[in-house]
């Protein structure tokens, strides 16, 4: 039984790995004391960025080129799925000295 199952299972595992070489990842950016950390992140298009806000006030992650504007509630989270490659500088609209950068490459 064990041997018979192992064959197909191994094949299935290999197939899954081969068929999905670029699993979309989730990259976390923490906000604490009005600082994005890490301030600079490298992602692949298709990945999701999750901002985790440890502050008791709301923030935003707003791109300079206006391609995204993510609301991040106080003590809450905000998410963005990166749709294209490029370098995106972003800031918080409410506290503009808070700055970050996303470097996105093709998947």
């Amino acid at each position: 039984m064990t041997l018979r199952l192992a064959g197909p299972l191994a094949a299935l595992s290999l197939a899954l790995v081969a068929a999905a070489p670029a699993y979309a990842a989730t990259i976390e950016v923490t906000i604490k004391q009005l600082v994005f950390s890490p301030a600079q992140i490298s992602v692949k298009a298709g990945d999701t960025i999750e901002w985790v806000n440890k502050d008791f006030v709301a923030h935003t992650a707003t791109s300079r080129d206006k391609s995204f504007d993510v609301q991040i509630p106080a003590n809450g989270k905000g998410r963005l799925t990166v749709s294209k490659a490029g370098t995106f500088d972003y800031y918080c609209r409410f506290h503009p000295m808070m700055k970050g950068q996303i470097q996105a490459t093709a998947p």
Binding site: Q33, L34, D55, V57, C92, R93, F94, H95, P96, M97, M98
Partner: peptide, 16 residues
Amino acid sequence: STGLKIFQGHQEHAQM
């Protein structure tokens, strides 16, 4: 001190 950071953000926002 946390308040000051928040209010410095407001000052910059007000300048904009």
